[in-house]
Write a protein that binds this DNA or RNA. Structure first.
Length: 609
RNA sequence: GCGUUGAUGGUCUAGCGGCUAUGACUUGGGCCUUCCAAGCCCAAAACCCGGGUUCGAAUCCCGGUCGGCGCACCA
């Protein structure tokens, strides 16, 4: 069993992840989040909100998961989010049609499926596997199609990314932020891609959750006002150059921007922010790096793009977050298709006096002469130079017809006007998070198997060595060849910021006199909105193990001393140490342990070590 | 999508033509005055789906679904 299998086994068993539609045999590319999984995922998302919405101030919006066709025509997904495929008649192997004709054609990637079919026929291209002939090439679009409304309805698509919603709402957002750059918006939600072959569990799904942020910035000033916050932060960078050598390096954000490794401050700031986020939710910083997209891998419109990748045991380095400078590509595309200008008016610090050549066609005279064409004539006149306008007979060409205009029909002059600003199409900086992958990464990086005896010795726990040697003696008597099996415990080292259960409350024995105070404590903790698990089933050791497995950071145990002095023990998951603390105020102590980084030793008097 | 390989309680697994399908862990109820799996009593729980061969199929054959791996794909 490799780590992926172990993590999945635990995830399934403990209610983190289940295959969807299992009752009916399942369907690839879909997963259910179980009770603990949903909670863990929501807590990850909530921390994301704290970063982007609360700290950065990019408000959250929510758009439909179904989009109308125009949106994806503009975004390029209708035309470009597909690949031309071609299958062999003989062996049914599928190939990229454009790859097949690459050797005989230039720009094969731009050809339609029909054109590709023709090229394949003309050049008699055969299957590289078996030499068979090919069927016609066809486009396989990765978007789920649907119909809006009854009958033939209107063509709709399930969104393949949440980003388009922010672009489509650009004008409203700009207004909301009082037309002042920079501003941004985020969206957390489901997106859909009809993957040809989903694999690797939750790494590639057909329905998945994205957390995307679109930051609209002034293209001329890509400095970050708060750059100092992270400028001295060291990141592990795997730049284009570094990839050639195959070795990543550490560098501060400031240096990286200065050296041109990272394109600009805003991108650098956002890389550091992502680093902060991933580390906070429990990604191992030693297995986290930022990889720059290679030139041919980057979208043609992007200036620079970095993926936050984490190392997993089975899949190697996996992309978790993409952080790109998408320039003005998206806004321009939507402007073109919607025939609406999308820009922000940016005022100058000082109004500028601009001298320009102004042409004023005299519509009162042009109108009667040219009737319906007058407007076009006026437009044509505006294109002329001063020299051409100074002639006795001015000639313009309208709809292929050469017309002569007398000089009194148009006036022109140099004029000086005050210009106080200009229209700017913002550039978009986009951090885009794959929540499901991050969820898996959090699980894998939290997963650990520990030798209990060793752990107990490290933490200086009393009484456990005895128990251990006793059991060994029993085994040795029973079976001569039995190796003294070392006890291991499965433990999820979730950060208490994301742990789906924060405190377990355990009566030492299932007896009313212990259960009552335990339930009292549960109520107090819940009042502090802590996530509490009450568990009275099985021996105390078993319950500690159970909670280790789901990553509960703290366990409170009620024993018979509790009845004497109203104190309980608090156990720390990672060290397995315990302290004794009074029930009064226990909810505040736990709250501080979880949210205020209070040290465990300060929570009470040492117990059993 | 192609090839390959697998699918047995919640989990891992034995069985590979023949009565009520193996075992472990887990789980539920109870016992237990004391803190880190394997204490005691009791209980619950499985042959992926559909066809075929056969007197008889978890077991053999075919198809499907799902999982692993390889190829292809991954805006």
């Amino acid at each position: 069993m490799d780590k992926y299998e172990k993590v999945f086994e635990l995830a399934k068993r403990r209610g983190f992840l289940w295959n969807s539609f299992e009752l009916y045999g399942g369907s690839r590319g879909f997963y259910d989040y179980g009770p603990l999984g949903s909670t863990l995922k929501r807590r990850i998302e909530q921390i994301w909100r704290e970063f982007y919405v609360i700290q950065e101030g990019f408000m959250e919006i929510e758009c439909p998961t179904i989009g109308i066709e125009e949106v994806f025509i503009a975004s390029g997904h209708v035309g470009g989010f597909s690949d031309p495929l071609c299958e062999c008649i003989n062996c049914s192997e599928a190939f990229r049609a454009d790859h097949l004709v690459e050797n005989v054609m230039d720009a094969a990637g731009t050809l339609s499926a029909d054109a590709l079919t023709k090229v394949i026929r003309d050049y008699e291209i055969r299957c590289p596997e078996c030499g068979g002939e090919f069927r016609d090439a066809y486009e396989f679009n990765l978007m789920f199609k649907t119909t809006i409304g009854p009958g033939t309805g209107r063509q709709g698509y399930l969104r393949p990314e949440t980003a388009q919603g922010m672009f489509v709402d650009f004008q409203r957002l700009s207004r909301f932020y009082r037309d002042k750059l920079p501003f941004g918006a985020v969206q957390i939600g489901k997106s859909y891609r009809n993957e040809i072959a989903p694999r690797q569990g939750v790494i590639r799904l057909r329905e998945f959750t994205q957390a995307e942020c679109e930051i609209f910035v002034d293209p001329r000033h890509k400095k970050h006002p708060n750059f100092e916050r992270f400028s001295d932060k060291e990141l592990v960078l795997y730049s284009q150059e570094a990839q050639e050598k195959g070795e990543s390096f550490r560098m501060t954000v400031r240096e990286a921007v200065k050296a041109g490794v990272i394109a600009h401050e805003i991108l650098g700031y956002n890389l550091a922010l992502t680093n902060e986020f991933l580390t906070k939710i429990g990604i191992n910083p030693a297995r986290l790096r930022f990889r720059q997209h290679l030139k041919d891998e980057m979208a043609h419109y992007a200036i620079d793009c970095w993926d936050a990748e984490i190392e997993t045991e089975r899949f190697g380095w996996v992309e978790m977050v993409g952080i790109a400078d998408r320039t003005d590509y998206d806004l321009k595309a939507h402007a073109r298709v919607s025939k609406t200008e999308l820009y922000v008016y940016v005022e100058y610090n000082e109004p500028r006096m601009v001298t320009r050549f102004a042409i004023k066609p005299n519509m009162g005279k042009l109108g009667p002469v040219f009737k319906g064409k007058a407007k076009n004539v006026a437009d044509a006149l505006k294109q002329l130079s001063e020299e051409e306008l100074s002639k006795d007979e001015i000639k313009v060409t309208v709809d292929g017809e050469e017309l002569t205009i007398s000089p009194d029909m148009v006036s022109f002059a140099e004029e000086t006007v005050k210009v106080s600003g200009e229209n700017v199409i913002p550039h978009v900086i986009e951090p885009s998070y794959g929540i499901d992958r991050i969820f898996y990464g959090t699980m894998e990086h939290a997963y650990d198997e520990e030798n209990v005896a060793q752990k107990a010795a490290e933490s200086g726990l009393k009484g456990m060595e005895d128990a251990d040697s006793e059991s060994r003696a029993v085994e040795a008597e029973g079976e001569s060849d039995a190796e003294a099996e070392e006890e291991t415990r499965l433990v999820m080292h979730f950060s208490s910021a994301v742990a789906p259960v924060q405190v377990a409350v355990l009566p030492l024995l299932t007896r009313k006199e212990l259960a009552d105070p335990a339930k009292e404590i549960v109520a107090k903790l819940r009042e502090k909105t802590l996530l509490v698990n009450y568990d009275d089933s099985g021996t105390i050791g078993r319950r500690y193990r159970r909670n280790d497995e789901i990553g509960t950071p703290y366990s409170i145990t009620v024993d018979y001393d509790t009845l004497e002095d109203r104190t309980v023990t608090i156990r720390d998951r990672d060290s397995m140490r315990q302290v004794r603390a009074p029930i009064i105020g226990i909810e505040n102590v736990l709250y501080e342990l979880i949210y205020r980084d209070r040290s465990f030793e300060s929570a009470g008097k040492p117990f059993n070590f």
